[in-house]
Amino acid sequence: MNDLERFREVVLADEGLQQQLRDTKDTTSFMKLMIHLGQLRGYEFTESEVEEALTAARRTWIERRIG
């Protein structure tokens, strides 16, 4: 499990973090906020890692709708 995945688990258990991230709809701002909040808690990941995770999630959803 990499730092991004670990941070995602932290967020899923923390309603305060969830609310901060939900308040940011713009994807670029969202990615920056993810990195910032992750860093504050000692998790290091890059914008491209977040972008890849978003792309993968989007692809999965589209494939599921088609399939």
Binding site: R8, V11, L12, Q18, M34
Partner: peptide
Amino acid sequence: GDRRFVEPFYDQTIGACLEHPFNLLF
């Protein structure tokens, strides 16, 4: 959240929510 199901089908409401990056990732 408090978003209502107003689209004709359930998956359409879910699909609209997945436009938010938070919902894609979490």
